[in-house]
């Protein structure tokens, strides 16, 4: 009498699958460590050096912070965001281009597990890179910690926001051009123009209003406030905006996985 092979049962969540998916992307990032982590460390130190020299001695205060104290949190949080975006979008696009995406789609993972797995691993990579970027800067610039919970909240929020955006771009993109275009025309301008390098309070009135419509502004501003105590916007508004944007991007990414957008025929 042959024994019947029963389908394997999972509980509500396939924990092992989810964990494996996360590890897969972290391992991939570890293999390109020099490129994905050390690259941002060097380029951000360069930004710091260039701004320190270009800004010179005179008038280098923003509010009651020195310009460098103002700048470093902006550089760190932007490194977090950019790395989170690149990790998920490059991972998905690479797998799609090489035809390996089937290995992820065949595994018993629900759309929700896929969304969470990709979002968490890319956010984790973003935070690791951010820590690596911040570390040498702490020796150069004296940085206070005004509120650790805000630092963690806005760093994680920014990382998740960009990780989820990376999922959406990774699913939508069909070629490397598309990925690069989204980075050059969306992620970098949104980050750079919303207060990474300067206080939006110094912008002309109209430009300032536009900057305040940008969710990335709240990520950067909230993170900077957590570190230095200098805020251009309200922390409560920031927390609400960041949470809402993360949730809506998560819903969008989940839906794309569910309908198999550009993934399944």
């Amino acid at each position: 009498m042959p024994t019947l092979v029963m389908p394997r049962r999972y509980g509500a969540v396939n924990w092992r699958g989810l964990w494996t998916l996360c590890l897969k992307d972290l391992h991939r990032a570890r293999k390109s460590f020099r490129y994905s982590v050390l690259g941002p460390v060097v380029s951000n130190l360069l930004f710091l050096a260039v701004f320190a020299v270009a800004r010179g001695g005179a008038g280098s205060y923003v509010g009651d912070l020195t310009f460098l104290q103002f700048l470093v949190p902006g550089l760190v949080i932007f490194a977090v965001c950019e790395c989170a975006y690149s990790t998920s979008s490059e991972s998905l696009l690479f797998d799609k281009m090489e035809g390996m995406i089937a290995d992820t789609l065949m595994a018993p993972l629900t759309p929700l597990e896929l969304t969470v797995g990709y979002a968490c691993s890319s956010a984790a990579m973003g935070l690791i890179t951010g820590a690596a970027v911040a570390f040498p800067m702490l020796f150069i610039v004296d940085l206070p910690i005004a509120s650790l919970p805000s630092i963690l909240f806005f760093a994680t929020g920014g990382a998740l926001m960009h990780g989820l955006l990376g999922i959406i771009v990774g699913l939508w993109a069909e070629r490397w051009d598309h990925h690069a275009a989204a980075l050059t025309f969306i992620v970098i301008p949104f980050g750079f123009l919303s207060g990474t390098f300067y206080s939006v309070a110094s912008l002309p009135a109209l430009a300032e209003r536009v900057a305040r419509l940008n969710p990335v502004f709240y990520v950067i501003d909230g993170f900077r406030a957590g570190s230095t105590g200098h805020a251009d916007g309200s922390a409560i508004t920031g927390a609400v905006v960041v949470t809402l944007v993360v949730l809506s991007l998560a819903v969008c990414a989940h839906r794309l996985f569910r309908i198999g957008y550009k993934l399944k025929p």
């Binding site: 701004f51 270009a54 800004r55 750079f192 123009l193 390098f197 300067y198």
Partner: peptide, 19 residues
Amino acid sequence: APLVTTLLYLAIFVLAIGN
């Protein structure tokens, strides 16, 4: 793409250096 990046740098430096 380089054009956009360069104009961003211009905007940032002019705004950050300010005066």
